[in-house]
Design a protein around this nucleic acid. Structure first.
Lengths: 135, 135
DNA sequence: TGCACCACTTAGAATTATTCTAAACTACTT
DNA sequence: AAGTAGTTTAGAATAATTCTAAGTGGTGCA
């Protein structure tokens, strides 16, 4: 399929980020293939396997920048651990408490009714539903 | 109202926890008055004001024990910060992202429909709804 | 094409939240 | 009153993340 391979540099530029070697390497790991959940540590491990040198600090920087640019979504499920989700569309999460696994599920079948109005002076940012399960 | 003043020692004993001076002091701060949200730091500050010596390590221990005993519920909203909620009944949360505030709202008006079945081999633990808002 | 500028990356130190360790203490049982 | 197991404690240790200051490298412009 010529021409269909995603141009990560262009995608980063479109998000207002300079396409450096390490950001492109990180984007490739994150966005080629299907949706993923990563932590800074796990992503650092993966990108190091590509032989492009990327420090852990850069992984943290990039994850925060990607999130701010809307390329990733941050999900906080347990104290001291946050995941970044490459799926930025509407969806919710299963969290398997017993082994720290996170799974997406689509939100199109899910309806939430009866939510109260946001406290005055605030506007809605997003509604997170986390279904906690255990083995 | 004679006889209605809550006996914190008895309450701790009922939860299987020895009612030590510091646990009783913490329970008093937490459970007298209405529902509260605290962090380890904020609770430590409050209990120190009662002039009963309680170390921060003990605050962490007690919060974890109270949670395990079902006296508190832990809510994780932001990376590196978790709140303990004295309201253990069914309810959900507003989280004001811009200033880190957490507010309860009752779940009796809220209905969630269309949730998928838990992944096989797991059973439901709890469904958290966090409505994120910003100023 | 070469160069300069400023954004970016980096190693390591710093920070923050939380847990651990080992010794001292104390509530409960006998 | 004394024994003993459960608790508390200060301080060290750990873990996740951010900061700092110096070096590197895209980018736009000559």
């Amino acid at each position: 399929m010529p021409g269909t391979s995603p141009d990560f540099a262009a995608r980063l530029r479109a998000a207002g980020l300079r396409p450096t070697r390490q950001r492109v390497a990180l984007a490739r790991v994150l966005f080629e293939g299907g949706h993923r959940h990563v932590t800074a540590e796990s992503l650092h491990g993966e990108v190091r396997a590509t032989r492009i040198p990327v420090s852990l600090a850069t992984v943290y920087n990039a994850l925060n920048q990607f999130r701010d640019a809307g390329l990733l979504r941050e999900v906080v499920v347990a104290p001291g651990k946050s995941y970044f989700d490459t799926n930025t569309g509407h969806h919710h999460h299963f969290f398997v408490e017993t082994d720290g696994e996170l799974h997406d599920f689509p939100s199109d079948k899910v309806t939430i009714a009866g939510l109260p109005a946001p406290p005055k002076g605030t506007r809605l940012s997003r509604v997170d539903v986390i279904v906690r399960v255990r083995r």
